Simulated scan of single mutants.
Amino acid sequence: LFAEVSAYKTEQRAKIEGKGYTIIANIGNNTTDLVGGHAERTFKLPDYGGKLS
């Protein structure tokens, strides 16, 4: 499941870049939010015991 979510998110960021945008920050509380590149910086937020999921 996580590999599919990660691939989807990476694909979406690539599409945004393909439109000429630069993603300067990718912020998330889950590793699937951050992996795959297509962002200049990534910031991992705490999950607060699952309250953000």
Rank of each mutant, 00 (worst) to 15 (best):
V35T: 12
E17N: 07
G20T: 09
N29T: 09
T10Y: 01
T42E: 01
Q12V: 13
S53L: 12
H38Q: 04
T31W: 01
I16D: 03
Q12N: 12
G28Q: 02
E40T: 11
A14S: 08
G18D: 08
H38K: 13
N29Y: 04
L1R: 07
E11Y: 14
G20D: 06
L45T: 13
E40C: 03
D47T: 14
L52M: 14
A39V: 08
G18I: 09
F2K: 02
Y8N: 07
I24L: 09
P46I: 01
S53I: 10
Y48M: 03
K44P: 02
K19C: 12
F2I: 08
V5I: 15
R13W: 13
T31H: 04
I24F: 07
I27H: 09
K19S: 13
K19I: 03
F2N: 08
E40N: 05
A39S: 11
V35W: 02
G36W: 15
F43R: 05
G18W: 08
E17Y: 08
K19N: 11
G49Q: 14
T22Y: 10
T22C: 05
N26R: 09
Y8E: 09
T22K: 14
K51S: 04
A25Q: 09
G50T: 01
T42K: 01
V35Q: 08
T32E: 03
A39I: 11
A14H: 07
G28I: 05
A3E: 15
P46Y: 00
K9G: 13
L52E: 04
Y8T: 04
L52S: 11
T32K: 02
K44E: 06
K15I: 08
N30W: 02
D33P: 10
F2S: 08
G37E: 13
I23V: 13
I24M: 06
E11K: 14
G18V: 10
Q12A: 14
V5Q: 03
I23E: 12
K9D: 11
I16P: 11
G20P: 09
I16N: 06
L45V: 14
G18P: 14
I27R: 13
G18S: 13
G18K: 10
I24Y: 06
Y8W: 06
N26G: 00
T10I: 05
I27Y: 07
Y48T: 00
E4T: 12
N29W: 04
G37K: 12
K19P: 04
T10H: 08
F43L: 15
T42M: 07
H38D: 00
I16M: 11
A39D: 00
Y21K: 13
G37I: 08
Q12Y: 10
D33L: 04
E11L: 14
V35D: 12
Y8L: 15
D33M: 04
P46W: 00
G37V: 07
T10S: 14
E11C: 12
Q12E: 12
I16E: 03
